[in-house]
Design a protein around this nucleic acid. Structure first.
Length: 211
DNA sequence: CGTCTTTGACCAGCGC
DNA sequence: GCGCTGGTCAAAGACG
């Protein structure tokens, strides 16, 4: 499954005005390893030219929650630049989607799974959605527990896992799974800040492609 | 009182 | 088949 490799990227909140909400900080997203500017609007465009099912509802649907920056992903595992692989979770019947800019998403039965690593002191970043914690697990070979969250909006079964990098606890590894079938509770807030919304970025409810 | 977190138990998948 | 591991459930407690 080597063709499902992500380019390794980092999310670097170096600016003091940094807000962990990726929706509000798309201009802070930098392809760190590639030394190349990487904006969230680019990421939104990734669906174009995808190898399958490019209805483009997926990313629109996961707008503020999902699209930060993934590390490399090898079919359910996060692969770091040092080629170490840390298990995220098996991704049964997954399929990779080739994306512009070298990024890919993992599609599962529950929708897409996107993992990324964020340098942040905050373990829970405000991504515009409301999450309910439903589990906590210690992970093998990791001193840090993994927390499980589910979108608290009724009928929305998007999940996310949050854990600290076992080797560098200043990084938080977040994995989103599924696509929200509702708008972000802070859409109103975004609409009040039109300059913060990338061109071509439309805040619309997704068709629940995961169903 | 409603909502959320905590946490131990349970279950399923996978490798040996 | 068995043990390990990750993911989820659900009861109990905390909190506003």
């Amino acid at each position: 499954m080597s063709d499902s490799t992500f380019l390794a990227t980092d999310f670097l909140p170096a600016d003091p005005n940094f807000n962990p909400n990726p929706m509000l900080n798309y201009n802070y997203l930098v392809d760190y390893h590639g030394q190349q500017e990487f904006e969230l609007s680019d990421y939104l465009a990734l669906e174009d030219g995808s190898e399958e099912d490019s209805t483009s509802n997926h990313l629109i649907g996961c707008h503020s929650a999902n699209p930060v920056l993934p590390e490399k992903i090898i079919d359910g595992s996060v692969r770091y630049t040092d080629d170490s692989v840390r298990n995220v979770a098996p991704t049964p019947r997954s399929s990779s989607i080739k994306c512009k800019g070298g990024l890919k998403k993992i599609k599962t039965d529950a929708g897409f799974r996107i993992a990324f690593r964020t340098k942040s002191e905050l373990e829970i970043m405000d991504d515009g959605f409301k999450w309910r914690k439903y589990g906590k697990k210690t992970v093998k070979n990791s001193p840090n527990p993994r927390n499980y969250y589910r979108c608290s909006s009724g009928g929305c079964n998007v999940k996310k896992r949050v854990e600290r990098d076992r080797e560098d606890s200043s990084y938080v590894i977040t994995t989103y799974e599924g696509v929200h079938n509702h708008e972000s509770p802070c859409v109103v807030y975004y609409n009040e800040m039109p300059l913060m919304v990338p061109s071509g970025w439309t805040l619309q409810a997704s068709n629940s492609s995961s169903s």
